[in-house]
């Protein structure tokens, strides 16, 4: 056990040093990749909050991601608001959208939940494309420049890192709070949960609101590093990416979405430079993960780690 713990610490330290030194160690291209990984991690963590704790599979998180991204872009271009105020308000837009959708879908389970959330995402997508005056239609809103702490690659990198760590900590605290445990109970057995006085529908709705807020934070950060908001952000395949990341990393692990987004984006970045058939390769990888690592990469690591420890014991 002790060996294992110090190994985890060592890996943690290396990752921490690497993250802190990021922009000074890495070439520019890879720094942007790491920023993208961080933003995707947060979005996937928000999806996994719902999926891992509450057991709700959402295919609609692209709607929250895009809603916050567009809110950021619109407030930055059409109002004279302070950029920090914008970044605080934009995720609330996503949370409000989450509350509205939550009221409508929180009674649904499994397949029906996934389909309904997906449908709402498609509605948001079509609204974005049909309002060119506000959203720029198919081209989206481009060329948004932030200033001060949010200007330049190094600043954006550290700002993103700080926000992701803060949000990750908040999600961790919520996940281990009585709310988080009530959600686990609902995931395990919604019928019995009602018989211990848990308000199943309200709690599932609240879980979606929390999740959509953090997905919104990621959406806002997307505008910061890509300087724009685009209709594809709302398309259901974006939700598919988030879910893929969760499955790849492991839905029963808090760090799963982070590991998953590192894996997915690194693979994507490296394989697209070799072949155009990137989606096919991804498909094969997902199949392999589902077959051989049903608990995702983190589940595999945990299991493998445990077996090692047990071998040493015996």
């Amino acid at each position: 056990m002790r060996g294992k713990r110090s190994f985890v610490w060592a890996v943690g330290c290396i990752i921490a040093i690497f993250l802190i030194g990021g922009p000074f160690i890495l070439p520019n291209f890879w720094t942007w990749v790491v920023i993208e990984i961080m933003v995707m991690s947060l979005a996937a963590m928000s999806v996994n909050f719902l999926l891992g704790y509450a057991g709700c599979l959402s295919f609609g998180h692209s709607a929250f991601y895009a809603a916050a991204a567009y809110a950021t872009a619109i407030m930055m271009t059409k109002t004279g608001m302070n950029q920090y105020q914008v970044l605080l308000l934009a995720p609330l837009t996503a949370a409000i959208l989450g509350a509205v959708i939550g009221l409508l879908v929180s009674r649904l389970y499994a397949f029906y939940y996934a389909i309904m959330t997906c449908a709402f995402a498609m509605i948001v997508w079509s609204i974005i494309r049909r309002l060119p005056g506000l959203t720029g239609g198919d081209t989206g809103i481009v060329g948004i420049q932030f200033t001060g702490l949010l200007n330049g690659m190094t600043n954006i990198y550290y700002f993103t890192l700080a926000v992701i760590i803060l949000c990750g900590l908040i999600l961790w605290v919520i996940g281990n709070s009585p709310l988080g445990w009530s959600l686990r109970a609902i995931r395990e057995n919604p019928d019995r949960s009602a018989f211990i006085s848990i308000d199943v529908i309200k709690q599932r709705c609240l879980a979606l609101v929390i999740s959509s807020f953090f997905c919104g934070v990621a959406g806002s950060l997307h505008v910061v590093y890509s300087f724009g908001a685009f209709p594809e952000l709302a398309f259901w395949t974006k939700s598919g990416d988030f879910v893929t990341i969760c499955i790849l990393g492991g839905i029963n692990s808090f760090l799963g979405p982070i590991v998953g987004s590192v894996a997915l984006i690194l693979l994507e970045t490296m394989i697209t430079s070799v072949t155009l058939y990137w989606p096919m390769v991804l498909g094969i990888i997902i199949c392999a993960v589902v077959f051989f690592m049903p608990e995702g990469i983190m589940g595999f690591v945990k299991k493998f780690g445990w077996e090692k420890v047990n071998e040493q014991k015996s």
Binding site: L179, W181, S182, R184, E188, S193, I196, S197
Partner: peptide, 27 residues
Amino acid sequence: NVFPMLTVYENIMVAVLSQKRMGFNFF
């Protein structure tokens, strides 16, 4: 009709937390 993937302790814990009306406590 229990919570199969939670431990025995956690099974009782979720009930006790709910009994104490802490279901919406998130910190």
